[in-house]
Design a protein around this nucleic acid. Structure first.
Length: 571
DNA sequence: ATAAGGATGAAAAAGAAG
DNA sequence: CTTCTTTTTCATCCTTAT
């Protein structure tokens, strides 16, 4: 699966979120995640406004471009044309308002009342739901949910701390997000008011008085731990409701079984048979064809119904993540969210060029300069750190955004560039954790994990933060510094299990795997993201696809997965 | 035609070893 | 100080999608 770190977007120029291919097999997974973790790709109101601002700034753009822009935001072409006719093409804010008005009135009257009822039934106020639907369009139900969730979270936002297994966390690894937000909510006294007492029964009572069911309350208490605050518990319940609602939107009948059909059975025996016969053939070509089929498997990964996000929630906006940037953020920079985290950062010369370009003007720079600066800011994820001064994110800031413990990738032989590279290629921990959260109930005693292409251990960290004990972990990672990072993390978090690291996936042949599996009694989870270098758009040199030097390791992933499956079945 | 992407490689700078 | 190694910087100049 794509492990690209899509941080909350702002990709301007007509709303890049719309360009994202929502119709891929990943769709539901991503959507599900977006609901609960709030880091998904979605248009918020702010971004919609951003889009309009951009269009209005390019007065020479033809009418059709303007239409496309709004159509891209999810409005029908018909409505857009009508709105432009009525309001002229000069003032895109007016057009947007008109469009929102149209959708609101059509929502209230039409078939969409069903949609609204649905969300109202979930406990949101009708007013909120209408607003959310207006902001997100009716097409994308999960974005609506996300927005609703955000509203509710804003209402009762008080930072809370994760207490998964607090005795297993060293102090450095505990609640590290909060360090960066202390100036947001810490002064608020709501925490005290809504924290009636520490004893479990009174919390339960309090929650039920708030209108939550007893079942919801007790599940939340179990998940969040005995020391959790009311704010944390309500956050949890809220998120759980979202997840449940999301599942309700995709009925069970629509979910096709993951392994069906004779082709699949043939396929999954392939690796095993090869191994069994110890035939050292050129399997690449053969597998390539097989894998081609595998890529068209139906959407398999939904419907567990009991996913839950990590707490505390990761920051959702640039301001939340980096409050100090607010002071220097110019009014003409409408970004509220960052772009994908990548492996490269902006050069000092670029930030210097930007500073020079801006210093020539006293107040707001002219539109063309604004556009230049904004384009670069989006391209490189620059944030404002001073007057006319933008800067790329520091490695520790990226670390925090991706959900890793503070200093996770610091030192231990990591150079600065190594750090950016490893982080840029890593999982976003909250994302992965949300998907893996289903395992918590399934494996209360912990899991055996086979982690391929582990990198800096995103999956391991995610499982740990979920409070899922790691019994035995086999971690395959080519980079020595990365292996050291995972090893260091393993020791610092006082893991009780065994960590075995292997440098090269090719080393993990049938014999080795069999030996490991008989020692641990099989693996409960195989996780990893194979290298993407040769698929990456920005790789101008060796974009050879899956057969490229690095990306071809994908086939090892398939090979190993097949082997594990078959060995497990034959045990 | 244009925009933009999950990165690379040459060259310069900085650090380490002798 | 010289030489070797690592790290950083910076501009790529391909492909795909619109």
């Amino acid at each position: 699966m794509c492990r690209r770190n899509i941080l909350p977007d702002q990709n301007g120029s007509g709303g890049d979120a719309d360009n994202f291919d929502w119709d891929t097999e990943d769709e539901l997974e991503i959507d599900n995640y977006a609901i609960a973790s709030r880091s998904g790709v979605s248009l918020t109101n702010g971004e919609a406004v951003l889009g309009t601002a951009e269009v209005s700034s390019s007065a020479d753009s033809p009418n059709s471009k303007l239409i496309d822009h709004f159509v891209g935001m999810g409005f029908s072409q018909e409505l857009v044309t009508k709105a432009i006719e009525e309001n002229g093409e000069e003032n895109s804010n007016l057009i947007l308002e008109a469009l929102l008005q149209y959708s609101a009135s059509s929502l209230a009257s039409s078939s969409n009342s069903k949609l609204i009822d649905h969300f109202v039934g979930m406990g949101f106020s009708e007013e909120m739901v209408l607003k959310a639907v207006q902001e997100n369009g009716e097409g994308n139900t999960d974005t609506i949910l996300e927005t609703l969730l955000t509203y509710s979270a804003l209402e009762k936002s008080a930072p809370v701390q994760q207490h998964a297994d607090s005795d297993d966390f060293s102090s450095d690894y505990e609640g590290n997000f909060l360090d960066d937000f202390t100036d947001i909510d810490s002064s608020s006294d709501t925490e005290e008011i809504i924290n009636p007492g520490s004893d479990e029964e009174s919390k339960l009572l309090y929650l039920t008085k708030m209108g939550y069911s007893e079942a919801e309350a007790s599940v939340a208490m179990e998940r969040c731990g005995p020391d959790s605050s009311i704010a944390e518990l309500t956050d949890f319940i809220c998120a759980a409701q979202m997840a449940k609602a999301a599942d309700a939107l995709f009925p069970v009948e629509d979910r096709k079984p993951f392994c069906n059909g004779s082709n699949y059975n043939k396929r999954r025996n392939l690796g095993y048979d090869l191994w069994k016969r110890k035939k050292q053939m050129k399997l690449e070509k053969k597998l390539l064809n097989e894998v081609d089929d595998a890529l068209h498997l139906p959407n398999p990964m939904i419907g567990f119904g009991n996913r839950f996000p990590l707490l505390p929630f990761p920051p959702r906006t640039i301001h939340e993540a980096f409050p100090l940037t607010r002071k220097w953020w110019p009014s003409w920079d409408p970004r509220t969210k960052l772009n994908c985290i990548q492996t490269c950062t902006a050069s000092a010369r670029l930030t210097e060029r930007i500073r020079k370009a801006l210093e020539a003007y006293d107040g707001e720079p002219p539109l063309n300069v604004q556009k230049y600066v904004l384009d670069e800011c989006r391209k490189w994820n620059l944030v404002w750190v001073g007057r006319n001064k933008v800067a790329p994110l520091e490695a520790d800031e990226v670390e925090m955004l991706l959900g890793f413990p503070k200093n996770h990738t610091r030192g231990g032989g990591m150079s600065r560039t190594d750090r950016y590279k490893s982080l840029g290629n890593s999982f976003q921990v909250d994302t992965v954790a949300y998907h893996l959260s289903v395992l918590k109930d399934m494996f209360p005693g912990g899991i055996n994990l086979l982690s391929l292409f582990s990198g800096i251990g995103g999956a391991e960290v995610a499982l740990h933060r979920l409070g899922i004990p790691l019994k035995n972990v086999v971690s395959v990672e080519i980079s020595e510094v990365n292996r050291n990072i995972v090893r260091g993390w393993w020791e610092q978090t006082n893991q009780r299990g065994t960590l075995i690291d292997i440098a090269d996936v090719q080393e993990l042949n049938g014999d080795r795997l069999e030996q490991l599996m008989s020692r641990f009694g099989g693996f409960d989870l195989v996780v990893g993201g194979s290298p993407c270098n040769n698929l990456a758009g920005s790789n101008r040199h060796h974009r050879d696809g899956l057969e490229g030097k690095e990306s071809s390791l994908f086939f090892d992933y398939c090979r190993i997965l097949d082997l594990v499956r078959c060995m497990q079945r034959n045990q």
